[in-house]
Every structure is written in C-alpha cells, then in structure tokens.
Design a binder for these strands. Sequence first.
DNA 1: TTGACATACCTAGAGATTCTAGGTATATTA
DNA 2: TAATATACCTAGAATCTCTAGGTATGTCAA
Lengths: 113, 113
Amino acid sequence: MAADRGAGNSTVLLILSVLDQGERYGYELIRELERRSEKVFQFQEGTLYPVLHRLENQGYVTAERKTGENGKERRYYRITPAGKKQLAAERESWARFSAAVNRVIGGEQHAFS
Amino acid sequence: MAADRGAGNSTVLLILSVLDQGERYGYELIRELERRSEKVFQFQEGTLYPVLHRLENQGYVTAERKTGENGKERRYYRITPAGKKQLAAERESWARFSAAVNRVIGGEQHAFS
DNA sequence: TTGACATACCTAGAGATTCTAGGTATATTA
DNA sequence: TAATATACCTAGAATCTCTAGGTATGTCAA
C-alpha cells in the first residue's frame, strides 16, 4: 500500500535476521524458519531460492559453495555490511507497519527495539 | 509463505476492521486508514476499489449507493455476518503471523486479543 | 463564468511476489 | 535396490498492488 512497502517483503526481513546470526544454506533456512516460527512460516523452495539469488545480486548476501559434513554440496550464505544496513531498515519498517496495523485493528500497541 | 497466507492480505484485515465500526464509503476508508495509521498506510484508489468489489463478491460486505450530505454519490459498504467471521479469522491470523515474525527477528513477544 | 481543486467512483495493464510443479543429483536406510 | 531425505534449481501460473489513466460533480476564487 505504498508509503512503506508494508509487509510483503517480510520474507527478506526474516532471511536477513537469521543470516545475521551466522551463515546458513538455503535448505537449512527453510527448516530453521519453520522451527523458530512454530510452523507459521513454511517457505517453499520455489519461493526461497529465487529470493536468495536476488539478495545476492543486490549485494546483501554473499554465497560460497562448500561440501557439508554429510558430503553434500551446499551454498552457504552470509550477510554483508550492505545487508546489515538493509536489515536495520527492514526492522524499522516492520516495527512501523505492525504498530500501525495494531492501531487500526484496535490491538495493543508495542514498542520494538 | 503458505501455512497461513501470512501478511499480504493485511489489506482485508484493515478494511474489515474499519467497517466493523460502521458503514464507510471507499474514499472515506482511504483517508481514515491514512489517519489512523499515522500515514503508514496510503492506499491507492486503484488498490482499494478492486478489493472492495472482491469483498462484495465474496459476501463479506454489502454496498448501497446513496447521496452523501455534500450532494455526491457514494457507495457505502457494510460488513456482513460472513464478513465478521472472516474478520475474526484474519485477526487470529495476524496475531499468529506477527508473533512469529517477532520470535524470528528477536523482538519481544505479545499476545493479542 | 470560468478555472482550479477536492471529492468520489472506476478500470486496464504493468510490475512484483509467491506458489505449483516439476527437474537433477547424492547419501542414507530398509 | 528401492525409498526417503537432503540440497539445489527454474518456468509458468496465480495473486496482489501500483501506475496511470478515465468520468463526473460540487465548491471557491478570480
């Protein structure tokens, strides 16, 4: 709805938040987001991989192909300084958005760090 | 991201929330959402009107054409019982979604009514 | 009275995002 | 050896929002 880009790209917020805690590979991200959200987020691979590629093109993450401890090839993603900046912006955006929704629907109001 | 339809349709939640407090016409909804969200939501007419028509087709709202006190033709929308049910579901969905985002990004956790 | 502006509605087409539904390949386990 | 989990990928469909127009009326100032 303009003005802020709203939710919609909460996907990027979620991915960068996890990567901010350390490198991850795509498949791992999907399972970790499912676990940490208690099944609320169940990203499809067809959703996640294209987003990761886009983030790489935008310079928010870098990728490195490595063989995991189980012998399988994986692409590990790390957040870049530009990605950290973007993450801060998205956190701010989410805080504003969710507070606004809560104001409109009459829910309680909160401050996020 | 499936499992819940996530944010995305927060537009419907917002519209039904306002209509739950009384009938409104489209143009009025845009300005009221802008005001109540403190400028965070700035819906375009090209976004809002098609959504209202969809809600009408789905039976969540009814519309009635009336001439306003300023002499202009307006379409007033009212929420239906089915719309109230849908609103309750969307509130629940939003509560789950926003709590999950906050868990993942490390923000505080809240309970919504 | 004429022009500008706000009100009030509408739609077609473009753009962005996510899902569906496939595909490939390797390692483990039955 | 067959099934399953891991791990990556993409094309096309579906959905939603935005852009960018359009129409029409009422008010107010020049």
